[in-house]
Nucleic acid binder design. Structure first.
Lengths: 105, 105
DNA sequence: AATAATACTACGTGATGCGATGTATTGTGT
DNA sequence: ACACAATACATCGCATCACGTAGTATTATT
């Protein structure tokens, strides 16, 4: 799938994953992979970005004598998800515009 | 609407507009505006890009002693539209993933 | 005479997904 | 015991793209 078309979407997918259950990088990617193509480097870039913009907070926990960073969503993160959902109809409208124009005549 | 979410979509909207009827910048933007938010600078940037990548060709025509650049779609442009349409289900899948995760519990 | 509409161009910026690469530990198969 | 996969995270730099801002120039309207 085209890279450009994923812009903005991936970020919200990540937020949605940790919404009800705080999770860590490795697990997040495992949970997403079956439904959404995402690379490791992208995920960690996104997690960092979401942290910097206060959409999530990080809690480092020791697990089997190894550190694990658990990501917890914040109210800003929740708001971001809602915001995206409100934009979705605009994206569908663009798709429908394309199909409609494409089928003219 | 979020800028990032439009990535890749606008380009295809432009191609769709000129698909059946070659058109020029000013008219394209008029035709799109009611359905798709796009700025002038973006449109002309996209038109240039589509020309450079052989998705359309330009035919300059004199109209009322003023030059008008008519944009005609090419086979590559048509292919691009089809390609996008084949990607759309992946975008819908991402949206559905978000809603599904969001509604868990 | 002033303003809006028509028509196109150019520059620079910010955002983002990703490939490539690296580090380090734990578990599993042979 | 050794190799390899799995677990877990981090960083750099690139390419792409929408847009704001600004500019040029002609024609139509008030």
């Amino acid at each position: 799938m085209d890279v450009q078309l994923k812009r903005g979407l991936l970020e919200v997918c990540v937020l949605a994953v940790i919404r009800n259950q705080p999770s860590y990088g490795y697990k997040i990617i495992k949970d997403m992979k079956p439904y959404v193509e995402i690379s490791e480097s992208t995920l960690y870039t996104i997690l960092k970005r979401l942290e910097d913009s206060d959409m999530l907070i990080v809690k480092t926990v020791e697990h089997n004598s190894r550190l694990r960073k658990y990501y917890h969503i914040t109210s800003r993160g929740l708001k971001r998800i809602e915001e995206f959902k409100s934009y979705w109809p605009d994206m569908v409208a663009m798709y429908e515009f394309i199909v409609r124009e494409d089928n003219k005549q």
